[in-house]
Structures are given as structure tokens and as C-alpha cells.
Amino acid sequence: MSSIKIELRQQDIDKIKEIAASFGNREHELINVLHKCQEHFGYLPAEVQEVVAEELKAPVAKVYGVVSFYSFFTMTPKGKHPISICLGTACYVRGAEKVLDEFKKELSIEVGQTTGNGKFSLSSLRCVGACGLAPVVLVGEKTYGRVAPDDVKNILKEYND
């Protein structure tokens, strides 16, 4: 679970209420409501889940159950530059795991985490449909192909702003 404790502002709560209302405050729309909330806030801290639960009249435990089940949902804010490493079959056999390990080492974080300065976050995904470029790494919207562990340092340097 996330250790981040935030305090919601009234406007944040109003936004969640607006999203819930747009789905008729129906409990079975929970996943859609969470999608929209994550789109807005960038992640789903406990406090946001609590408001969602209240609006949909669902137990918070259940909302957390859904958030923790789907890997798409995250309770930690993504970094300014989210890094995704493809671990699909093609990328994997061409050494994506070693690339991932290098990112972990360089950034000192695990998959699903964000660096202390909020600059980078690390996630893995399955196949972006660019198998010819395997192994593939995405940083924000930018795609890097045929990445080797040695390239990792240089990629990160590009974001020294």
C-alpha cells in the first residue's frame, strides 16, 4: 500500500463527485469511475478511493480490492517522466529483463515505484506492437528501440533538465 498521505481539497472532492455522478453513482461503474479519477489525478491515493467509495455507496475495502487487482491502477504518483519497459515475449527473449535491471539499478527503485525527486517512475508492460525494435523502452511518449543495458545511462541523461 501507498505510504503517501494526502489531504484532498474541496475542489478535488467535487471533481470526484462529478466523475461519479457522470456514471450515475452506480456501484457497477466502479472501474470506469476509477479510470477517470486516475486520468485526472494521475494516480489513486487512498483518500480518492475513500471518496469514490462514499459516492458509489460501496465499501472502501472493495474499491481498494479493485485498485489492487488491476495493474493499470496505481496508488503512487507517476514520475514526471514515466519509464515503461516492454517485457513481451519478443522483448524478453532479446534481453529486456537486463535492461529493466539496469534501470532499477540506476534509479534505485523497483517496478511500480517513483524516484524520491518525483522525476522518474518505472513500470513494465506487455508488447507495444513494435516487436521489430525489441527490446523496447518508452519514456513518456518517446520510444527507444533495440535498447541494451549500456544505453540506459544515456537515455536517462536526456532528461537532465
Binding site: A58, P59, A61, K62, G65, F69
Partner: peptide
């Protein structure tokens, strides 16, 4: 509503 299945 205290308990729910979590993770996968």
C-alpha cells in the same frame, strides 16, 4: 464492508 479480496 471491512473485508475484501485484494491483489491477484
Amino acid at each position: 464492508g471491512a473485508l475484501s479480496a485484494i491483489h491477484r
